[in-house]
Simulated scan of single mutants.
Amino acid sequence: MTWSNYRKLAAWLVLLALLPLFSGCSVYSFTGTSLDPAVKTISIQTFQNTASNGPSFLAQRFTEEFKDYFQRNTTLKLVPRNGDLQFEGQIVAYDFAPAAIQSQNGVDQAGVNRLTIQVRVRYTNTQDPKQDFEQTFQSYGDFPATQDIARINNDPVALRRIMLNIITDAFNKSVANW
């Protein structure tokens, strides 16, 4: 290797070593969050089930999934109350209805049933109140007409998929600012 090549290699190594300094003071992380470094804690109150129907365990399961998602995707410490970020809300709809009607031998019947869940989320950012919001998020899942609501309620994967869509939307709106 020539002296010129050593100088080029040394220049590249210095540049690579200094690159993190040029990235600025961004608050972006690889999980997609854009949190202010002053935000350290999160509190998530139990989401109440105010829907006229739905399984009795729905509020507790949704709240636990919500907490788990935020703990997996942020470095925030979960506290019982008064976190820097605060979530509360209620499950406002849990509807199971035919989504596609098909006619068989002159008789109309459901071909596909749809479970729709709506959750009203209230978000408070104590460090930046301009980001506060209250919004209803909705997701649904389609199921064969042969699968009744009791079976779906006892299928944690089916319910989890619908709940996870709502939680992801709330995550993106609150800490990812999408």
Results as ranks from 00 to 15, higher is better:
residue 9 L to V: 15
residue 12 W to I: 13
residue 139 S to V: 01
residue 57 F to I: 12
residue 150 A to G: 02
residue 123 Y to L: 08
residue 32 G to M: 03
residue 55 P to D: 13
residue 65 E to R: 14
residue 90 Q to T: 09
residue 47 F to S: 00
residue 62 F to G: 05
residue 44 I to T: 01
residue 127 Q to V: 13
residue 69 Y to D: 02
residue 30 F to A: 11
residue 22 F to C: 04
residue 53 N to F: 13
residue 85 L to K: 07
residue 10 A to Q: 08
residue 150 A to C: 00
residue 113 N to Q: 11
residue 22 F to G: 07
residue 82 N to G: 11
residue 83 G to I: 09
residue 91 I to L: 14
residue 157 V to R: 07
residue 129 P to N: 04
residue 24 G to H: 05
residue 24 G to A: 10
residue 55 P to M: 09
residue 82 N to A: 14
residue 65 E to W: 09
residue 152 I to E: 02
residue 128 D to T: 13
residue 9 L to F: 14
residue 22 F to M: 12
residue 101 I to G: 04
residue 165 N to F: 00
residue 30 F to T: 10
residue 42 I to M: 12
residue 7 R to M: 07
residue 69 Y to R: 01
residue 91 I to S: 09
residue 52 S to G: 15
residue 23 S to C: 07
residue 6 Y to M: 05
residue 127 Q to M: 11
residue 2 T to K: 10
residue 3 W to Q: 15
residue 139 S to F: 02
residue 163 M to H: 09
residue 105 N to G: 01
residue 48 Q to F: 05
residue 90 Q to E: 12
residue 31 T to R: 09
residue 153 N to T: 04
residue 121 V to L: 08
residue 62 F to E: 06
residue 154 N to W: 01
residue 108 D to M: 11
residue 173 K to E: 08
residue 67 K to C: 03
residue 124 T to D: 11
residue 141 G to F: 01
residue 63 T to G: 04
residue 149 I to G: 00
residue 68 D to A: 15
residue 127 Q to K: 15
residue 98 P to R: 01
residue 52 S to Q: 12
residue 69 Y to I: 03
residue 16 L to K: 00
residue 67 K to W: 02
